[in-house]
Design a protein around this nucleic acid. Structure first.
Length: 352
RNA sequence: GGAGAGGUGGCUGAGUGGUUGAAAGCGGCGGUCUUGAAAACCGUUUUCCGGGCAACCGGAACGGGGGUUCGAAUCCCUCCCUCUCCGCCA
């Protein structure tokens, strides 16, 4: 969540950032709401100060055996007024918080400015894209042909957008997870195996709530959600903690399944294992000092790229433009590799 | 599932409805002493919000929320969490 102080002090910075992201946010409305809220708080605090003073006097008078009726009379009706102000302060606070929760992060100055993905900037390219002297098959044909992916039986169990990994398919998935974990652990990341369920408060912490509730699976009759990414438990691991600066950076790696409702993406990437309701992910996460967090980001990106290099998969590193940036991200360097290739084949398929 | 105990500052741990933001100890910080350190002694040490250029002033916080009261860490309700015992169980 963007702090109200930042908006108070630098409204222009925030406005400019929102414009670059292509997001409509009424900063002026937030500022005037904040002013109104503070005005109420001042009035309330003054009133409470008055009442507290009298209450203290009553205590003193009683101890000294003096008459207190006059004191009681002097604060008559104050209670109701206080309750009234408290209520309106609470309401203003909630309104303000709700608005603030819907403001995305301020992009870093190094992020290319542009309204959509066409403004993304390539910052690195690695490896050779293989040429085939035959027509390559999409992965779902290969997978079902080898009997290592089974989409139909998955759909029997649960429905569309799930897959059953079978035999060597299951083993391959497991081996990849393990390979990634081991590689990162060797390089100083601490492995975490977190709960795959998180409560609402945690989802607010990562910006998934309140704005993106429809992307999540909520467990009926509870305050629990299936995690859409390991980022949720990893970020909340240290929520409301003050970290010792000496111990930074704290580097974590976690394997978790991820669950996404993919609402609003019906008809997109409908075949294969690209856009599933459940998928496996090995996540890297670093808690770093703000002074060197962007160096740390580069370290982390290199670390992730290493996996692709070890697997001899060609890739590009793309800096996402302001218009393509995720909600809580100040900067995103994304690795485009195999998935992009699959998508390309898939989209060609789609056009036929 | 049944029965019970408990949640207080960085930690341990007192606390009768009224100068208790909170004893004491530990830890931290500053100082005296010392060549330096330890010990001892003295002092100091919560956070958030608001107002103010500032010194400072006001408000809030004793697991969360609500209630009673002029006044709540203390009484009542409710939720959450931790621990112990019994039962059941992968």
């Amino acid at each position: 969540m963007i702090s109200i102080e930042l908006i108070r002090k630098n409204p222009e910075v925030v406005k400019k950032a929102m414009k670059e992201r292509g997001v409509e946010v009424d900063i002026e409305a937030i500022i005037s709401l904040d002013l109104e809220k503070r005005r109420i708080q001042k009035e309330l605090d003054d009133l409470k100060a008055e009442k507290n003073k009298v209450s203290k006097l009553i205590g003193q008078y009683k101890r000294e055996g003096k008459d207190t009726t006059e004191l009681f009379n002097s604060i008559k009706g104050k209670g109701e007024k206080i309750k009234e102000l408290e209520e309106s302060l609470k309401k203003k606070g909630e309104e303000l918080e709700d608005l603030l929760y819907r403001i995305p992060n301020i992009p870093h100055e190094s992020v290319p400015v542009g309204e959509d993905e066409s403004f993304n900037k390539e910052i690195k390219r690695w490896g050779e894209i293989r040429d085939f002297d035959f027509e390559p098959l999409p992965h779902w044909d290969i997978g079902t042909g080898l009997d290592i992916l089974d989409f139909e039986r998955a759909s029997k169990i649960v429905g569309a957008r799930f897959v059953v990994y079978k035999g060597l398919g299951a083993k391959l998935e497991r081996a990849l997870i393990n390979f990634m974990l081991e590689t990162h652990i060797e390089n100083g990341y601490t492995e975490i195996l977190p709960p795959f369920i998180a409560k609402a408060e945690s989802l607010y912490g990562t910006g998934n709530l309140p704005k993106f509730e429809e992307d999540l699976f909520k467990l009926k009759g509870t305050d629990w959600y299936l995690i859409p990414t390991a980022e949720v438990p990893l970020t909340n691991l240290h929520r409301n903690e003050i970290l010792d600066e000496e111990k930074l950076p704290i580097r974590y790696v976690a394997y978790t399944p991820c669950f996404r409702s993919e609402a609003g993406s019906y008809g997109r990437d409908v075949r294969g294992i690209i856009r599933q309701h459940q998928f496996n992910k090995v996540e890297l996460m670093t808690y770093a000092h703000p002074d060197n967090s962007y160096d740390e980001l580069e370290f982390l990106t290199r670390e992730a790229a290493k996996i692709l290099e070890l697997l001899e998969l060609p890739y590009r590193v793309m800096a996402l433009s302001t218009g393509d940036l995720g909600f809580s991200s100040a900067r995103t360097d994304t690795l485009k590799s195999l998935p992009a290739l699959i998508l390309k084949i898939f989209r060609q398929e789609e056009q036929k």
